[in-house]
Amino acid sequence: MTDRAALFEYLLRLGDSTLILGHRVSEWCGHAPALEEDIALANTALDLIGQTQMWLGLAGEVEGAGRSADDLAMLRDVWEFRNLLLVEQPNGDYGKTILRQCLFDAFHFELLTELTHARDDRIAGIAAKALKEVTYHLDRSSETVIGLGDGTEESNARLQAALDLLWPYVGEMFAADAVDAAMHKSGIAPDLAVLRSRFDTRIDAILTEATLTKPDSAYAQSGGKTGFRHSEHLGHMLTQMQWLQRAYPGATW
């Protein structure tokens, strides 16, 4: 793999994860448990969509084939997506949504913190802007997980069920492959093993305060960020997200 191909892959991973999670979170708009939560979720989704525009825009530039961020978002099929499996999981109840958010935010925060030192000004710049947004996302999602975990018997049970369901998707965030290794070598991406230990420290503290029990299985699903095997959910999401661009090829909106 050339350096450019690896960088393109890496940028797709960043942009596809924010795209797919932003899309999932936007599905809540108009349906959240309280008006304040509705508005807050929309802010998170808007931040993630904005980050997607930057990451995929840069990916298109790096690829050099004339594809825009919109082309990449709207005109690729499932196997060409490089997002984490975690973010394509359906929203479920609010507990599952907020726990998915918290797990991703805790990873995202550490990753972006490191990417602000990337040996590529474009990447460092995007990371610096995104980090400000994600610092707040993490604050909000972790406090909500704590509030619901340590809330009523029902809210605790729902959060625990969400954690059990989503935990197998945590490992993929930190599983380094050839792309990660190449990016690490060229001074762009951090060592994922280091991120994992910081992630664990933070998540352990949140879960303790939330009176939730971390599943003791280390089993990790994989296939999202490599694109080798996504879940069935992604295809259904794409049929919605890409509908207009696919049904009216070449139209501008």
């Binding site: 304040e36 508005i39 807050a40 802010n43 707040y136 604050d139 909000r140 406090e143 509030g147």
Partner: peptide
């Protein structure tokens, strides 16, 4: 104004609602 379970949440909600 807005609704929130406690002061910390109220601050976050205020940030989300009133500083868009």
């Amino acid at each position: 104004s807005l609704h929130a379970p406690d002061a910390e949440h109220a601050l976050r909600n205020a940030r989300d609602v009133y500083t868009r």
